[in-house]
Design a binder for these strands. Structure first.
Lengths: 189, 189
DNA sequence: CCGCTCATGTAACAGGTTACATGATTTA
DNA sequence: TAAATCATGTAACCTGTTACATGAGCGG
C-alpha cells in the first residue's frame, strides 16, 4: 500500500489532476516513486472513496474538464500513521545486474551497450535532479535552505535520487571499463 | 520474467538445492536479486519443466533428500538471449523515501528512528560485501582479479551492491543530520 | 491531415507477498 | 523441551504491467 501514500505525499504541496500526477509518476519527475497512469487513476478513485483525498471539477474552455485533488485531514492522518509504521529494507531489483552476474557466460557486446545507455541515463537524471535542487533552494545555500526552508521533504528525496543515480553511474562506468578491457584483450588474442 | 534468469545466473557457479537458493535469494547473500522461498521453488519447477535446468536427487542419511539443480545448454542459451534483449531503467521504490517526501507534514520521531536503522543496515551490508569481495579475489588485487579472473560476474554485482548501499548510507546520514538539527531547534523554541 | 498533448479510464495478465502446512534433526 | 535448521511446497491475495479505448484541440 505504498503507491497510496506516495500519491498522498505528492498532493501535499499543491492540488493536482490525475493527469498531472500520472505524468509525474510515469517519468522521473516525482523521483521518489514510479507508477503508470492506470495505477494512478485507480488509486485516486480508491483514495477519494476512502475520504483521504477530495476532488473538485475544474471546467476549462479549450481543454477537457479536469479534476483537481487535495489531501483531507483523514488523508494527513493516514500519512502520519504510515510514516510511523515500520518499513522493511528495499532491495535492488534490476535486470541489468542479473545480466552482469552472468557476464562470464554471455555475450559481452550487448552488456556493454546496455551499461553505456544506463550510464548516460544516470547522468541525465543527475543533471535533472541538480536543476531541481537549484530551483527549490532558490538563492539560498543548501545548508541555509535545509535549516530554515518550510518544505524540505522534496529536496531530501531529490538528494536521495542523486545518491542513487551517482551509485548507478559510477558502477556502470566501472563495470564498463572492466568488460571493455577484457573484450579488447580477447579480440587481440 | 527476471527471477527466472536470476535463478539461472545463480546456478552458473555450482549446483544448488532449492533450499540453498531460497536462502541466498531471501537474505542478501545473492545481492543481485531478492525473492521469497516460495517463488524460488515455484520457479525451479517451471525451469525444470522447460528444460532450462536439470535436477538430481541427493539422498542424505540424517537430512531429508534434497534436489540439486544445474543449468542445461538450453538454459545457457536462454540466459544469453535475456542478456542480449533490452532492459528498461530500474526505479527506486522505497517506503522510507515516500515518508521523507512527507517529512514536513508528519512526526519526525519515527522517521529519525527508521533512518538510523536503515543507515546501520546499510553499513552492515557494506561490511558483508567487502568481506565477500576479499574472499572472491583472494590474494590478488582487485585490478589483477578483474583483469584475469575467470569468474568476475559475481564480483561486479557485489561492487554494484556496494555502490547502492553507500548511496543509501550517505543519504540516510545526511537526511538524519538535517531532521535531527531541525527537531532539536524546534524543541528549544 | 498526422501526430502530440490533455484527460480519463477498463480488462487481462504477470509477478510478488502473506499465510499456512509438514516433518525430521541438531543446537541451546 | 523449545527453537533453529534442513527441505519442500500450496493457496489466496495484492500490486504492477501490458494492451486497449475514447475524444477534443493544437502545432507542423
Amino acid at each position: 500500500m505504498a503507491l497510496r501514500h506516495a500519491v498522498l505525499a505528492a498532493l501535499l504541496d499543491r492540488e493536482l489532476s490525475g493527469y498531472q500526477l500520472a505524468k509525474a509518476f510515469d517519468l522521473g519527475v516525482a523521483n521518489f516513486w514510479h507508477a503508470l497512469p492506470q495505477q494512478v487513476y485507480a488509486e485516486l478513485t480508491r483514495l477519494e472513496q476512502d475520504g483521504l483525498i477530495a476532488g473538485r471539477d475544474v471546467v476549462q474552455d479549450t481543454r477537457p474538464t479536469k479534476r483537481l485533488f487535495h489531501v483531507t485531514d483523514a488523508g494527513l492522518a493516514a500519512l502520519d500513521r504510515f510514516a510511523a509504521a515500520g518499513s522493511k529494507a528495499s532491495f535492488l531489483r534490476d535486470d541489468l545486474v542479473v545480466k552482469v552476474q552472468a557476464a562470464d557466460h554471455v555475450d559481452a557486446g550487448p552488456l556493454i551497450e546496455q551499461l553505456t545507455e544506463r550510464a548516460a541515463h544516470a547522468r541525465a537524471k543527475l543533471e535533472h535532479f541538480e536543476e531541481l535542487l537549484r530551483t527549490m533552494r532558490g538563492d539560498r545555500t543548501e545548508e541555509e535552505f535545509l535549516r530554515h526552508g518550510e518544505r524540505i521533504g522534496p529536496y531530501l528525496t531529490c538528494l536521495g535520487g542523486i545518491a542513487f543515480e551517482q551509485g548507478n553511474r559510477d558502477w556502470c562506468e566501472r563495470t564498463l571499463a572492466v568488460l571493455e578491457e577484457r573484450q579488447a584483450r580477447r579480440a587481440r588474442s
